[in-house]
């Protein structure tokens, strides 16, 4: 088993507790920081996820690790009647809930503080489930994915947006420099919690991406698995069906 990548290396807390603490700490600046570290490209990637999910006209969507609710808010464009955003960080959800109320979307989007590995829904509840930049924070990846599989309706779509690592020169080298030196420095400008931003890039490097992630989805039982690298491979969109 690989060594676990956690936000606070000296902490004796479990990975999930550390990730919760980290996101509670950085929630206030999180949206602004995301725009800066990805040069705003994350907005484009989220739009692609919305367009993939829209293809099947889902009525009920669950967005896991919804954080400040960006993807859940974008998902209203699919025409879904009900969208639930779930996150373990109450601090992130509080920021998200404010955004939802400002946009007058309280009738469509509901938020729940909860754990992706222990979902409070009955089996076969959702037409589509999305996770953007969240699966790499799962403490037990297979348990989280199995819970997602359980609550997804047969034939429903599971769409994941996650950072990945470019495999081609020179993007591979450029990415390494960026995540090792530039990303933590930008993080420091936004937040005193430097270790939080170092974690964001280290956990991306350790996460099984591309074919490795496809294999895990397959093992859980998903079918029709496809991964689509985005922007030189710095992120990937995975699409699977139950």
């Amino acid at each position: 088993m690989d060594k676990k990548v956690t936000p606070y290396k000296d902490s004796t807390l479990g990975k999930k507790e550390q990730v919760t603490k980290m996101f509670d700490t950085i929630s206030g600046n999180y949206d602004g920081l995301n725009r800066v570290i990805s040069f705003g490209i994350d907005i484009k990637w989220r739009k692609r996820v919305v367009s993939i999910v829209s293809e099947k006209h889902p009525a009920k969507i669950l967005d896991i690790a919804t954080g400040t609710g960006d993807l859940a808010i974008n998902m209203t464009k699919t025409g879904a009647k009900e969208i639930i955003g779930l996150d373990i960080s109450a601090g992130m959800l509080e920021v998200g809930k404010r955004k939802i109320t400002e946009k007058n979307l309280d009738g469509i989007i509901n938020m729940i503080v909860g754990d992706s590995e222990n979902l409070p829904f009955e089996a076969n509840s959702f037409d589509a489930i999305t996770v953007a930049f969240g699966v790499r924070n799962f403490e037990n990846l297979e348990k989280g994915l199995s819970e997602i599989y359980r609550v997804l309706k047969p034939g429903g779509s599971f769409v994941v947006l996650e950072t990945s690592i470019p495999t081609k020169t020179p993007f591979k080298q450029g990415y390494k420099l960026y995540t090792k030196f530039i990303l933590p420095a930008i993080g420091k400008l936004f937040s005193k919690d430097r270790s939080a931003y170092a974690y964001l890039s280290e956990s991306a490097a350790a996460f099984p991406h591309g074919a490795a992630f496809n294999n895990i989805l397959n093992k859980i039982g998903f079918i029709g698995i496809d991964n689509r690298p985005q922007t030189f491979g710095v992120a990937s969109i995975y699409v699977a069906t139950k």
């Binding site: 479990g14 507790e17 109450a90 959800l93 729940i112 503080v113 909860g114 754990d115 409070p120």
Partner: peptide, 12 residues
């Protein structure tokens, strides 16, 4: 609380 159910594991 404020319209958001808290349903996380005990340790959180």
């Amino acid at each position: 609380v404020k319209g958001i159910p808290i349903m996380s594991p005990d340790e959180f």
